[in-house]
C-alpha cells in the first residue's frame, strides 16, 4: 500500500494526539471543546470560522472535519464557499499589505 504524509483515515487518530503528553493533551481538548462549542456565537458561526481557517492553514484534516460538521449543521454549499472566500481574501489582503514593505524599499532605494 502506498503511504502518504496525509491520509484521511488518520483523522480518526485526532482524539489520540494527547499520547506522550497527557496533561497538555487533556488541557488542549478542554480548550478546543469550549472554544468551538456554542457560546455567544452559535456553533454554526464558529464552524464557518473554523472552516475558513482550515483552508487558510491548509489543514486537510480540519477541512475534512469542518466540511462534514458544517453539513451536519445544515449549512449550504453556498454559505460554506462564502466562508472560504472570506479566508482567501484575508490571506490575499495580508499578502498585499506586506507589499508596503516592498514599496517602502523601492522608494528608498530607487533613484
Amino acid at each position: 500500500m502506498a503511504h502518504q504524509y496525509y491520509e484521511s483515515a488518520d483523522l480518526a487518530d485526532f482524539p489520540n494526539i494527547e499520547e506522550f503528553a497527557r496533561d497538555q493533551g487533556k488541557a488542549f481538548f478542554e480548550y478546543y471543546g469550549s472554544s468551538t462549542g456554542a457560546g455567544k456565537l452559535s456553533e454554526r458561526e464558529k464552524s464557518l470560522i473554523a472552516l475558513a481557517v482550515a483552508h487558510t492553514e491548509h489543514c486537510p484534516y480540519c477541512i475534512d472535519a469542518y466540511t462534514t460538521k458544517c453539513l451536519s449543521l445544515g449549512l449550504t454549499s453556498d454559505e460554506m464557499m462564502e466562508a472560504v472566500h472570506v479566508g482567501a481574501s484575508m490571506v490575499a489582503g495580508a499578502v498585499l499589505a506586506h507589499a508596503t514593505q516592498m514599496r517602502k524599499i523601492i522608494r528608498k532605494n530607487e533613484m
Binding site: 452559535s42 456553533e43 451536519s72 449543521l73 445544515g74
Partner: peptide
C-alpha cells in the same frame, strides 16, 4: 454524515 445537534 451525522446530524448536527438537535436543538441548534
Amino acid at each position: 454524515f451525522l446530524p448536527g445537534p438537535q436543538a441548534a
